[in-house]
Write a protein that binds this DNA or RNA. Structure first.
Lengths: 204, 204
DNA sequence: CGTCAACTGGACTCGCAGTACAGTCAGGAA
DNA sequence: TTCCTGACTGTACTGCGAGTCCAGTTGACG
């Protein structure tokens, strides 16, 4: 456990950085082993093929993202007990966090795998799917809690509203990548936040 | 001009279908020439390399998308002269259109190229960038027109709001692809429509 | 001392991008 | 009619990256 901070994790770290920067397909095993300072054989000792690497990366990403959401909205809830206000605080924290990520955000791995479907097996695709469905359920639950206190001003499909968090993050990240700007995702989150404010605003 | 409906366009058609289905990298020149019933030499006669193909595809996509937006919002404007209401109609039409596209929507090519950056040269990336900036300007203009009639209920960054159309479409398409569902993008558009309704609702 | 996990290193196959180039073939200009 | 050119075909080659196979090394632990 000296400089070999667990080779497997080191491979994942290198791969992650490269995939975030240029995509999965464009990331060669060659450069991963060069970066991790191991041999090709060593790579295949840990991962049967590139698919297995993708799967492991996705698992890590999704766990990290879920932990992040858990933490963020738990902190937000501590700051304000009202479901709407704690959600607004959580989204603000999320936007701030996105702004502080110079290169990229795990979220884009979701999009990345989505658009390179055929490169991945059913397992990878299913991981991706389950992650998004998990976020849908998570946010749907939170929005339902809000709706119990503040009646929405317009009828809303709660599943779609739950998806909108992921959608707005993913969409923002796509813009960010394509435009080479740095705050599109956080701006989109802030717009979504304003949406919620309007949607659940008391009629009074 | 008999069965050879212009070989170049035929190549683009085949490539387009394949790229929409499985991504650019996973689309081999081999299968394109097989589909278009030409030789490998024939392909390279028309396109210097895969990059040139990507560029031509993107150009076609962007033109088509712009023409679609022109048409859609022109029709919407004919149906209602009010800027807000015609925007709401246009978004409804857009959502309906997205629902009727079984496989995919050109929009995903934007995301696709964004996430496979390094495969493409500066020209391709710039096309992508200009397209998104164009949509930003287009929608920003429309929202400003609306804001002149209906004062927004919350202060809004108009550039970001313009981007939100693209963001919500792209994000919805990501979800759609990952979840293997078929109406996420149109649902997201409809949510965005509700947003605009709330944002520009008269205070009365 | 032996064993086992965690590697190294090299040789090989295969598929795909891209290059090179010689040859074919239809149709319009001279 | 001849010649030229644009739109190809066909073949052969290089080079790269994924993935396979496997024999051998090394360090920690029982």
């Amino acid at each position: 456990m000296d400089h070999k901070v667990d080779t497997r994790s080191r491979i994942l770290d290198i791969a992650e950085a490269s995939v975030l920067e240029k995509g999965f397909e464009a990331t060669s095993i060659e450069e991963i082993v060069a970066g991790a300072e191991i041999s090709r054989g060593g790579f295949f000792y840990h991962f049967k093929d590139k698919n297995a690497l993708a799967r492991a990366m996705l698992e890590r990403y999704i766990d990290a993202e879920n932990a992040l959401y858990d933490d963020l909205f738990a902190r937000a809830r501590e700051l304000n007990d009202d479901p709407l206000h704690s959600m607004l605080i959580g989204l603000k924290l999320l936007a701030e966090m996105l702004e502080e990520m110079p290169t990229g955000h795990p979220g884009c791995v979701i999009a990345s795998t989505a658009y390179q479907d055929r490169l991945f097996d059913e397992g990878v695709r299913d991981l991706n799917r389950q992650a998004i469905l998990g976020w849908r359920a998570r946010f749907r639950g939170m929005f339902e809690q809000i709706a119990r206190v503040y009646e929405p001003r317009e009828p809303i499909n709660m599943d779609a509203l739950g998806d909108m968090v992921s959608s707005v993050v993913e969409g923002g990240l796509v813009l960010q990548r394509a435009l080479r700007e740095h705050n599109n995702a956080s701006e989109q989150i802030m717009l979504f936040r304003t949406y919620l404010k309007l949607l659940f605003a008391p009629k009074a």
